Structures are given as structure tokens and as C-alpha cells.
Amino acid sequence: MEDAGIYAVESPYLERYVQVGIASGRVISVSFPELPPEDAVDDHPILDRVLEYLDGVAAVDFDDVSIALTVPTDQRAVLERVRDLEYGTGIDVAELAGLTPGLDADDEDDLIVVRTALDENPAPLLIPDHRVRDGPSAAPPAIEQKLRSLEGL
């Protein structure tokens, strides 16, 4: 059976639900609703790992989770670099631009590309945009701050 649907679990740490949308076995979205849809399922291996991460298990990573990135190519390159950031590692927008092939840390247009990619990240937490200190996050501000705090950023 194909892995598809809406999955959600309540996180005591975040004081919200973590909701994951999956299609064709790939994550298409991560969000943090106050209440999930009534048809959301609360049992999925990705949610189990998310809860472990939120419990402070630093060894939990999401490198092997397949994420469907339907964003422009330059933004995809930024988000792929963000996925490479290790737990507890913080960088700034200019550093991220410098790490992204085809972007220049001194070019304001390229910095806008980085900020736009972070802001439109379809899977915050799995693509840890909260590790970029001076960039926007696709997660709500309160969630972003809790994720940063969890990692000591």
C-alpha cells in the first residue's frame, strides 16, 4: 500500500500538533496546527522520530526522509544545503548563500533567494530552517524559538 495521507501527533514540548502530509511515500508538508484535521492519523514512523527529537534526543536526524520539493531550482539548492546542517549548528543567511552552489554571499539578489527559500520551506523541522539565525522560518515564530532553544541556538 502506498504511504499517503495526513498524519499528526500532539507535542507537549511545542504545545501544538506536528502535522505531516505525505504523498507517494514522500513528505510534502510539515505544519504545526493547534488542532489537526479530524481524518489525520496519529501513527507514523516519521512522527515517532519527530517526538524523539522534540524529547531532546540529539541523535535523531531526518536525512533519510524523502521530501518532495516542488520549489524553483535555486530555492531547492538552498533547502538542500539547510538539510545538511547538523543538530545544534547555526549559520546566517550570508553563510548559507556561500554554501549554496550558484549563489554569492555578497549578492543581495542571492540573499533574497535564500530568505525566500527559508520562508517558503514546505517542511520546517525536517528541513531545519530554524538553524539559520537571521533568516525567516516557515514555522510559526513560537515554534521556531522552541526548536532553536532545544538545539541550544
Rank of each mutant, 00 (worst) to 15 (best):
M1E: 15
M1S: 15
E2W: 11
E2N: 14
D3L: 12
D3K: 06
D3Q: 13
D3W: 08
A4T: 08
G5V: 06
G5A: 06
Y7C: 07
A8E: 01
A8R: 01
V9I: 14
S11N: 01
P12S: 14
E15V: 04
V18H: 03
Q19Y: 08
Q19P: 09
V20G: 08
V20H: 09
V20D: 10
A23C: 05
S24I: 04
S24K: 11
S24L: 10
S24A: 14
G25L: 00
R26N: 08
V27Q: 04
I28L: 10
S29Q: 13
S29K: 13
S31F: 01
S31G: 15
S31D: 12
F32S: 09
F32N: 09
F32W: 11
E34V: 13
L35Q: 13
L35A: 13
P36Y: 05
P36K: 05
A40K: 03
A40Y: 02
D43W: 09
P45Y: 05
P45N: 07
I46C: 06
D48F: 15
R49C: 02
V50Y: 01
V50E: 03
L51G: 00
E52D: 14
E52H: 14
D55F: 00
G56I: 03
G56N: 02
G56W: 01
V57Q: 05
A58V: 08
V60M: 01
D61F: 03
D61I: 02
D61G: 03
V65K: 00
S66Y: 00
S66N: 07
I67R: 02
A68L: 12
A68W: 11
V71A: 13
T73F: 11
D74V: 07
R76Q: 10
A77K: 07
V78S: 04
R81G: 05
R83C: 06
E86R: 15
E86S: 13
G88L: 08
G88Y: 06
T89Y: 01
G90N: 04
I91L: 14
D92Q: 08
V93L: 02
E95I: 07
A97K: 10
L99A: 15
T100C: 10
G102N: 12
L103D: 12
L103E: 12
D104C: 05
D104E: 09
A105L: 11
D107P: 02
E108D: 14
E108L: 13
D110V: 02
L111H: 14
I112M: 08
I112P: 00
V113T: 13
V113E: 04
R115I: 05
A117W: 01
L118Q: 00
L118K: 02
E120W: 09
N121F: 00
N121T: 00
P122K: 03
I127C: 09
P128S: 10
D129C: 11
D129K: 07
H130K: 07
R131W: 11
V132T: 09
R133I: 15
R133S: 14
D134P: 12
D134G: 12
G135Y: 13
A138N: 02
A138P: 04
A138M: 04
A139C: 08
P140E: 14
P141N: 11
P141F: 10
P141W: 11
A142P: 08
E144L: 06
E144I: 00
E144V: 09
Q145K: 12
L147S: 07
S149Y: 07
L150Y: 04
E151G: 06
G152S: 03
L153F: 11
L153V: 06
